[in-house]
Structure formats: structure tokens, C-alpha cells
Design a protein around this nucleic acid. Structure first.
Length: 221
DNA sequence: GCTCCGATGCTCT
DNA sequence: GAGCATCGGAGCC
């Protein structure tokens, strides 16, 4: 725990680790506030980390697109019912997707982390993915592979599984809300703007080249 | 025990 | 922009 703090603060002297409490806030608020935060994984190969640039909110029992729609509950999605800050990981085809549980205990909401910008351990990410450039981390399955995060971490609390999220005062210039990806035939929930992105960031998934901007972060304080 | 399918990504056109 | 890989769990027989 101390060594990772030292390592992060070498690069970001004023970095603060987010505690599970931080995720008790409203899911849509957390999803937007996560943009610019640093997602960190301590692996056997070294530290991997990146700024979060794309998230999606999943609003529990009433959200048709959520795994916990109508409070559906099973060993597979049990993590969604746990306390805020719990990691919810599941496998999609042969990929692993990472969520962080939000809100009160037993209210099964979560934020899906869909894309990051590599910051630490880019060489490790290249090894893990056999790819380079934006292809390293511009998708939910890609970023877990790049960071070396396995579905075995499902159910662990943030900070207790070598996975942590840090406030490093990186602030988006602009945030845009759009419909979520891969949610067909879910009525109004298909179209609700619950996907949040750092406007124009090159690492956002499924983005057209002409939408990429050169300036995406505010200057640090 | 069997079928169905997905909050994806890669490849090829 | 379409096709398909690939696998565990849920739902049903």
C-alpha cells in the first residue's frame, strides 16, 4: 500500500487515493467524476495505470440494460449488490469488463470503465496486448487486458486487490453524454445518455477520426 | 443435459 | 460494416 503511494506520488505529488465511500454518490455523478481519475493496477510485472476517459452508468433495477434489471440476482452479478467501491467484473465473449459499484449497499448500480489513456507502464500494456497506440486501451475489454486485470478480482473492494483509483487533478476540458454502446432493443434505455466521455479524447472507443481534438484536458492547477 | 446468448474485439471486405 | 470467435451461466427440458 505504501509503496504504490510512493510510486504514484513520484509522478503526481498531490495524488489522493479514492476511498470506497467516494462511490456512494449518485451513479451518474460518479460516472462523470471518474473522467480524468487515474486507474492503477499493481501487477507482478510492475505498475500499470491510465486516465479514465470514458464511462457508462448502469442504473440497477429499473435499467433494462443493467445486469441487475428488476433486481435480478445470481452468483454472477452478486457483486453489484455489495457496498460502493466493490469491483464487479464479468466476462463478455473472451474479454473481461471492469465496473465499480456505486450508491448504497444492496442497490445494484455500477459504472463501467470503457477506456483509459495510458500513463504508467505502457511497455507492460504493449506486452499484454501485442498492440500499440490507441488500440492499447480504447475499449472495455482492451483496457483490462492491457492493465492485466482478471475477472478473478470480481467482488474485491477497491484498494484490496491491487486495483486503486486516484485523484491526480486531471480535469476534462469538456464532458459529453451519449447513448451507451451495445445496448439494442432496450426501449428508452437504449437511448438514454448514460455514456460519458472526455470530449474529443483520442482513446475513446468507437470514435471517428474527425471527432478527435488536440486539446482535451484543462491545465493543471 | 442442452441450448442460447452477450455492457466485445479482430479481421477482412 | 458484417461475420465470427468462444465460454460460462441461466433457463428450460
Amino acid at each position: 500500500m505504501e509503496t504504490i503511494t510512493t510510486e504514484i506520488r513520484k509522478i503526481f505529488p498531490r495524488a489522493d487515493r479514492l476511498t470506497p465511500d467516494w462511490f456512494q454518490n449518485k451513479t451518474t455523478v460518479v460516472a462523470q467524476a471518474l473522467l480524468g481519475k487515474l486507474l492503477v493496477h499493481e501487477t507482478t510485472k510492475g505498475v500499470t495505470a491510465g486516465y479514465i476517459v470514458e464511462t457508462e452508468a448502469y442504473l440497477g433495477a429499473e435499467d433494462q440494460a443493467s445486469h441487475s434489471f428488476q433486481r435480478k440476482r445470481s452468483p454472477k452479478n452478486e457483486s453489484m449488490y455489495q457496498q460502493a467501491g466493490t469491483l464487479y467484473l464479468y466476462r463478455m465473449h473472451r474479454h473481461t469488463l471492469l465496473n465499480v459499484v456505486t450508491g448504497p449497499l444492496n442497490q445494484p448500480e455500477a459504472v463501467l470503465i470503457r477506456a483509459i489513456e495510458p500513463v504508467i507502464g505502457e511497455r507492460i500494456m504493449q506486452e499484454n496486448r501485442a498492440q500499440h497506440g490507441v488500440n492499447l486501451t480504447n475499449g472495455p475489454g482492451k483496457l483490462t487486458q492491457a492493465l492485466g486485470i482478471s475477472y478473478m478480482l470480481d467482488g474485491y473492494l477497491l484498494n484490496q486487490a491491487n486495483v486503486s483509483i486516484w485523484d491526480v487533478s486531471q480535469v476534462p476540458m469538456d464532458i459529453v453524454a451519449t447513448p451507451r454502446i451495445g445496448i439494442p432493443n432496450k426501449g428508452e434505455w437504449t437511448h438514454r445518455p448514460l455514456r460519458y466521455t472526455v470530449l474529443g479524447h483520442p482513446h475513446i472507443s468507437r470514435q471517428l477520426k474527425k471527432e478527435v481534438r488536440t486539446s482535451v484536458w484543462q491545465n493543471r492547477k
